[in-house]
Every structure is written in C-alpha cells, then in structure tokens.
Design a protein around this nucleic acid. Structure first.
Length: 584
RNA sequence: GCGCCCGUAGCUCAGCUGGAUAGAGCGUCGGACUUCGAAUCCGCAGGUCGCAGGUUCGAAUCCUGCCGGGCGUACCA
C-alpha cells in the first residue's frame, strides 16, 4: 500500500541526487535514506535525517538539509491533496509539514472502506509457508509451556497470512515411545477399567494422572521401568492388546487436548502422528550412506560427521536399525515437502533444541535437499515461575485448563462486581474471552527469544498493559458506535487535536507493522503497537467528545476516525488470537 | 571446558534495519466519575541501559574482552 510519505521520499531523493550529481548512484541514496517521525509534532510530520549523507557527500549535514528542504519545497509547490505540503530544515533534519486534512481523509477513508480487511497486505504474496507448532505428548494434558508455543505459532501463522502468504499449520503429535507406555502401564496396573466418563474427568487429565501415578510407582518399585520397556517392545512388535490400550488412551489424550485447542482458538490444517512418521527417514539415511555423505562404524551405527562446520559427530541410525528423534525429523521434513512443497518451513520449538535443528538442517543439506536453506527454527525461551523453573516432579507445572478456568472465574467475578451482568450477552462466555485475552497478550507481549517469568498474580490482572485493556477499549467504542453510526467516509477536514493526528499516523503505519511483525516472526511488535494505539485512543476518548460532540461535522468526523481505528484494532487482535468483545 | 541466548526503573517488559530528551505496566503517593462505559484518564517519584574498552558526526542498539544468569554440548525427545 502506498503510504502518505511516499511522494516526500521521492522528492527528497530527487533533491539529494541533484546535490550529489554523478558522484553517488541513486540506489545508494535510497538505501541510506531514513524516514522518521519527529519527537514533537511542532517540528513537523515526517523527518529525514541528513547525517548519513554528510559522509557520502562530504558536506555539513545541516547544509545538506537546507539545500534539500529548499528544493523539496519547490518540488511540492502546486501539489494538491495528500501530496501537498512544505519542507523545512531543522539542523541536520529535513522536516516535512503535511497537508494534514488531505492526508487524514485519505488514511481514514482507506481504513473505513477496507473494513475488516484493513491491515491485510501482499508483501508475502505467492509464498507457501508451513509452520509446525504445539506438538503435544499423548501422556499428559497441555501446560503453560505449550500455551506459549501455541500462542506464538498461531499468531505468527495468522500474521504471515495477513501479510499475503499461503500458510499451512501443522501439528506433530508425539504418540509413541517409552513415556507413552508409562501411563499405559500405570493404567493397566491401577486403573481397574475406569474411564474418563466413569471418573467424570477431562480425558487428557485422566491419562495424565496415570503418568503421575507411574512416576510415584517407579520410585517405590524398581520393577516398574523394565515393565515399561517391555511394553514398548510389545508395542513395536505389534502386540494387539497393547495396541488396543494404546489406541484407547491416545484417543482420550488427544480428545482432551483438542478440546483445549478449541477453547484457545488454536487449529491446524494437518496433523501428523509420530507413530506414523517415526520410521520415515531411515531410507533417506541409507541413501545418504550409499552416496558417501554418512558413514557406518563397526557396530553398524550410522553417523554424520559435522566437525568441519564446528558441530559434532551425530548418530543418525542405531546399529539395530532403529530410528532416533533426528532420524524421524529428517523423514517428516521430507514428507512435508512432498505433501505440500513449501518456500519456508518454520518450526516453533523451544530454544533448548537449537543444536538439534542446526544438525537437522545441515543433514538435509548434505542429503542434497535444495530446500534445506528455507528451514527455520523459531526458537523461544522458557516460561519460568517467580521462584524458578516449572518442575513436573515437584508439581509446580501450571496446567493449561486450570489456568484458563482460574482466569475465567476471576473475569466473571469482575463482571459481577461491576454490575455488568445485564450488559453482556452471557457472563461465562464473555469471561472466557476476557481470560483468553489476558493469557494470550501476556504470553505474546514478551519477544520470543527471551525467557519469561510467569507471575500468576500479574497475569491474572485485567488492568494496565493487558489484553483486557485492549478489549475494554473495543467494548466502549462498540457501545458508542451502537448509539451513533459512523459515516462510510469522512470529508477532508483538519484534525483538531493532537490525538486525532496521532491516530491517523498509527492507522497509516499499521499495515507495515503487520508485515514487519510477520517477517520478524514476532507478535510482541504488533502487541505493543496495538497497546500504544489503544492508549492514544483512550486519552482522545477521555478528553474529547466524539458521539456527543455538538458540532455535527466534528461528530461525524470523529465517529469515522473511531470506526477506522476499531477496524484496525479488530484486525490486530485477531492476529494475536485475542477475542473482540462488544461488551464486557 | 566449548558453543548459543539473555542482562534496560524496586518487579514484569517495550525500544523496528545505529538517529533529536531511553518508554510502558505493576507497585508507592496524589488527583479526575450529574459528562460518549472509571477494567479508564491525569500527575509525582523512580535509570552509571551489567562492567570496561573500541567503531562514528551519533551507541541501549554494532565489535572485542570481562562479570552475572539460562540453555545446550545423548545411540532421550
């Protein structure tokens, strides 16, 4: 989308290249030119710092600014509409004063006519991106760590889509292995044929309880572990009783987990199961062995030597021919590329596995997969508690369902204590949406690379820099727009107060923010943009009349601006997987 | 030991590819509801941007070293 500063950028570049003559090519000038917003709007609406050109042009930056400003103003002379205005040198900066009325009308009307699509872009048009996230085990329910993973994966996927990419969200369910057998064994041992229904328990929690039960048992009885291993062997040999139990318990686990997905707005286009993919990759490794990319030792183990790129030697296939984590990841990557050839494959996986992905990508490269360079590990930090790490053994793991229940309960209390029951359609449904807003915003406001501290009390709060703050703004404005309809378009009219102009500016910069956040795979950029915008709007709303403005033209204009900002907020909240509420 | 990541206000975090005076929220203290919804708004206080060098017109941002913390360095996943 063409931005309102585009004509000015062109004019500044023209002026610079006139000053530079043949000495500097235009591409260099364009790369060097920065566009900023002056710290104080009295200084102008757009700023171009001339510092970098001082070196290139061997001139005083303030002098350059004066020359450029003069010729830019001349170039703009006679222009009308959004391209009109003048430039002024302020020290080493060229500052532009726009025809705000014209620019504002263009920006607002674009947001009004685009409606809920405002913010969708085409920067990634034609790109096919697969994104893998969540990847739960079928021996226990989701916990806080999964919630961060899910929030990130879902949000990044939505942002990439908004930026124009074709996105395929995939899940890989870890439904096999010794840890799965442990809960199965404990159930066979202590379950007495009970079921989630008979116990009145959510089915994934039911399964998880047996995993915990196993852990306790293992401590008391040294015979437990060998039996778990024997069960894994039986499973691998296709023992029918074991498979029947496995199918039943997996179904319980997955149904429960899917319920949490539905609840949190997480979805996938394709689900892979490790039980179906774990043996993939073996043939690929053997092919690589034939091609001399890998080697076999005297025990029959297949290795890859990555010491030439400062990594280690890694085992790809055990001597008995069985697969490892790495083996199957090689297989699933290849399978995915066959299923749906992608331009990029993003793995949303905790940063502890950085090394694993380095190795994985390099092995695929050595197997001659030309698409190996398009693989990307979106590593994110761990979620800690105020007193340290979550430890499943110490029972400090924060359960996903419990946390959301707790949040929803508090939100419902809040609704009641404010006497809002009559104003919302359904207290519990609204409370649930507020809970998700609090949770998702909390998880996404921190950039992915950083470890974060989950402070229960803080995350349970609904005021300040939180998801519910954003929802609250939406609810108030929705309520206002129910009473007074916004116009379909606004006339050319100068914004009267500073907040109006700031909102126009934020409206204009929003589509690019979506693209930047998507390309950086960083929802926190978008989150803080929305929060800052909401703050500006809150102040505007508080200090100035909108729907109750006496002057009908002013009222219409402000209602139009409000609607436009709401379109943007709704779009942005959706990208963060935060539900919009009409009333709360 | 080696490798990767992080270190910004008392706490939790922003700060885009280096750019004009480093920002929020929570917490403390104080103010604003006969006015479009007070889950809001406004104000006060709070900083050697871990430390030391370097690069440059200019560094929280880039480079080097050190300190502190996390993670990794499995024929676990």
């Amino acid at each position: 989308m063409k931005q309102y500063w585009t004509p000015w950028k062109t004019r500044v570049l023209d002026a610079l290249s006139a000053v530079a003559g043949d000495a500097v090519d235009e591409a260099t000038l364009e790369e060097t030119l920065l566009i900023e917003t002056p710290p104080d709007t009295a200084k102008g609406d757009i700023a171009f710092p001339m510092f970098p050109f001082a070196r290139i042009l061997r001139k005083n930056p303030a002098q350059i600014a004066q020359d450029v400003a003069a010729s830019v103003t001349t170039a703009a002379d006679g222009a009308e509409g959004p391209a009109a205005g003048r430039a002024e040198a302020q020290g080493p900066y060229v500052n532009v004063f726009l025809d705000r009325a014209a620019v504002a009308a263009e920006v607002i009307n674009r947001a009004l006519s685009d409606g809920e699509r405002y913010g969708n872009g085409s920067a990634l048009d034609g790109q096919r991106i697969t994104i893998e996230f969540s990847c739960p085990n079928t021996n226990k329910p989701l916990h806080l760590g999964h919630l961060r993973n899910d929030a990130l994966g879902e949000s990044v996927a939505r942002m990439l889509r908004a930026a124009g990419a074709e996105v395929r969200k995939v899940n890989l369910i870890n439904d096999r292995g010794i840890h799965i057998c442990k809960s199965m064994l404990a159930y066979r041992e202590f379950g007495n044929g009970s079921t989630p229904e008979s116990e009145g328990k959510k089915s994934d929690h039911f399964v998880g309880d047996y995993y915990v039960r196993y852990a306790r048992w293992e401590k008391e009885d040294s015979g437990a572990e060998p039996r778990a291993r024997a069960m894994l062997k039986a499973w691998e040999d296709g023992d029918s009783d074991t498979h029947e139990l496995w199918l039943t318990m997996n179904r319980w686990a997955i149904e429960g987990i899917e319920e949490t997905y539905r609840r949190t707005g997480i979805s996938f286009d394709e689900t892979y199961y490790e039980s179906q993919t774990y043996s993939l990759g073996r043939d690929e490794i053997l092919k690589g062995l034939d091609d001399g990319v890998f080697y076999r030792d005297e025990k029959g183990t297949v290795w890859v030597d990555l010491t030439d790129i400062d990594l280690d030697k890694k085992v790809l296939l055990r001597g008995d021919g069985t697969s490892l984590y790495l083996t199957q990841d090689i297989g699933t990557a290849i399978r995915r590329h066959e299923d749906w050839p992608f331009d990029r494959l993003i793995y949303v996986v905790a940063s502890e596995q950085r090394y694993h992905f380095q190795v994985l990508f390099e092995v695929l490269r050595r197997l001659g997969k030309e698409w190996a360079d398009s693989l990307y590990h979106l590593a994110y930090g761990m979620v800690n508690l105020p007193d340290g790490k979550m430890k499943s053994r110490e029972g400090t793991v924060v359960d996903a369902d419990d946390l959301i229940d707790r949040l929803a309960e508090l939100a419902a209390e809040e609704i009641r204590s404010k006497g809002r029951e009559e104003h919302v359609d359904d207290v519990d449904e609204t409370a649930e949406k507020i809970a998700l807003a609090a949770l998702h915003y909390y998880l996404l406001q921190t950039g992915p690379v950083k470890d974060m501290v989950f402070n229960p009390e803080e995350s349970l709060s609904f005021s300040g820099n939180t998801g519910p703050y954003l929802q609250y703004l939406g609810a108030r404005v929705s309520s206002m727009l129910r009473k007074q309809n916004a116009p379909e378009a606004v006339p050319v009219r100068a914004p009267e107060v500073e907040e109006e102009w700031q909102l126009v500016h934020r409206l204009a910069a929003y589509p690019q923010t979506v693209i930047d956040s998507a390309e950086a795979h960083n929802p926190s950029m978008l989150a803080s943009y929305l929060y800052d915008t909401a703050k500006v709007f809150s102040r505007f709303y508080h200090d100035h009349p909108i729907a109750v403005a006496k002057d009908p033209q002013q009222r219409e204009y402000r209602l139009g601006l409000s609607r436009a900002v709401m379109n943007m907020m709704q779009h942005g909240l959706t990208l963060l997987n935060i539900p919009f509420v009409e009333a709360m």
